[in-house]
Design a protein around this nucleic acid. Structure first.
Lengths: 107, 107
DNA sequence: GTCTATATATAGACAGCCTACATATAGACT
DNA sequence: AGTCTATATGTAGGCTGTCTATATATAGAC
């Protein structure tokens, strides 16, 4: 997976993976890997700053928790995040339709 | 169309639009707009440098031509460009499949 | 003479994803 | 006791491709 290809779609991925239940960063990375069938292996240097960015934007709410001695920061979707996710899904469909028409003009 | 979303997919678009016939930059922009159903309106500041980049990479070959007093630089796919296009199409399918699985896990 | 469409090009800004590194706990294994 | 791996978070700095804004020039309409 080319790195640049993800540009602009990371937010949709993170919001989507948090739709059903709150998760912490490490679990988010695993969820992305599993749900993509192994295609997505996003580095921590991408995910953690992105989560902070989405939190600053009000789309996620993070909270510290402890599992034994380990500290985790668990993120959940806010109401604004849920709305943003709907927008991201819509934008994704428009995007793939537009690019698809150019790449496969016969269909 | 969010600008960042295009990152990493511009090459595929340019190569694809040049598959059937050579075109010059301005015509490429119009072809992208038409073939995408109006969704893609790529600025000249994106297209011209990208064409140069693909030419440097050996995927396109550019040649100056004249239509009356106007100078045009017409680009055609090289053999390497044709192979690259096949790779881009394959990568596009993998990409949309992976992201699609995350965004719509029910399907 | 002006305006619009056609046509190419560059400089600099911007943003986000990446690599590499730093830190720390838990548990398995030797 | 020491090492290794998995779990867990985070930052600094680099990279690169897209965009905005600007510059230049011809053709044709009005």
């Amino acid at each position: 997976m080319n790195a640049d290809a993800l540009r602009g779609h990371m937010d949709a991925l993170l919001l989507s993976v948090l739709e059903r239940e709150p998760l912490h960063g490490y679990a988010i990375i695993e969820a992305l890997r599993e749900r993509s069938g192994g295609a997505l292996d996003v580095p921590t240097g991408t995910v953690y700053p992105a989560l902070r960015r989405l939190e600053r934007a009000g789309l996620l709410a993070g909270e510290w928790a402890s599992d034994g001695g380990r500290k985790r920061r668990t993120y959940r979707l806010t109401d604004a995040g849920r709305k943003a996710l709907a927008g991201e899904r819509s934008a994704w469909r428009s995007f793939t339709t537009a690019i698809g028409r150019v790449l496969d003009p016969l269909r």
